[in-house]
């Protein structure tokens, strides 16, 4: 089942006289259950592509279908709604709302989704257990290590049962041990909960965890293979 379908997606950034082609006709389809690394050097267009797929930004050309719906036709409020129910994001750092505890951060998504208090508290606690943060529920982000913060971010990204989780260099700010732990966690979630993941990286070690490796260079997909 295809979850994301990119067709000839283009993005050109203009800054005065200069224009940078960040995406130069990307064709890509992602199916349910994919555990895909979007790999490429810095400036190759990884962040841009993930933002497009997640409906945070809109392409200058081409089309993106998410669960069959064309994102470029949606209004900002519809995009927000789509992100709320279909997409989970994990960024490189500062993912969490600083004034909320770990469990509250996870709950927040479900609050936005309109889930009743009892249910969201139960789910949030359960998922924090799943990501290995049992007993750390009440900690604020500042009281968690970088690796723990990213675990909360993963928990938050998957708890709303999205169609896809987009992780933009989720391990780039972590030491290699914590990075590996996080990848293992994502792998586990992919296998046990059938969560579809795309994560961008320029790190060889990270690419090894992927079951599908897509290479991007200068805004073009240059290689796409499944292991």
């Amino acid at each position: 089942m295809t979850i994301v379908e990119c067709r000839n997606v283009k993005k050109i950034y203009r800054q005065g006289e200069v224009s940078v082609t960040a995406l130069d006709g990307v064709d890509l389809s992602i199916v349910k259950g994919d555990f895909m690394a979007l790999a490429g050097p810095s400036g190759s267009g990884k962040t841009t592509l993930l933002n497009m797929i997640g409906g945070l930004d809109s392409p200058d050309g081409g089309s993106i279908l998410l669960n069959g719906q064309a994102l470029e036709k949606m209004k900002p409020s519809q995009l927000a709604d789509m992100r709320l129910h279909q997409v989970g994001f994990v960024f490189q750092s500062y993912n969490l709302i600083p004034v909320l505890s770990a469990v509250e951060n996870v709950e927040f998504v479900m609050l936005l989704q309109g889930m009743p208090l009892q249910e969201r508290r139960r789910k949030a606690l359960a998922i924090l257990d799943d990501v290995g943060l049992a007993g750390k529920y009440g900690r604020r982000p500042a009281e968690l290590s970088g690796g723990q913060q990213q675990r909360v971010a993963v928990a938050r990204a998957i708890v709303g049962a999205p169609a896809i989780v987009l992780a933009d260099e989720p391990t780039a700010n972590l030491d290699s041990a914590s990075g590996k732990d996080l990848l293992k966690l994502m792998q586990e979630m992919n296998e046990s909960k059938k969560v579809t993941f795309i994560f961008s990286t320029h790190d060889k070690m990270v690419m090894e965890y992927a079951r599908r490796l897509t290479l991007i260079r200068d805004g073009r997909i240059v290689e796409d293979r499944r292991k």
Binding site: L56, S77, A80, L84, H85, V87, F89, F91, Y94, I97
Partner: peptide, 16 residues
């Protein structure tokens, strides 16, 4: 601002 960006990425609408 960045925090608001994260909240928006989670699907929090501008009105909220």
């Amino acid at each position: 601002t960045r925090e608001f960006g994260v909240m928006m990425s989670m699907g929090m609408g501008p009105g909220r």
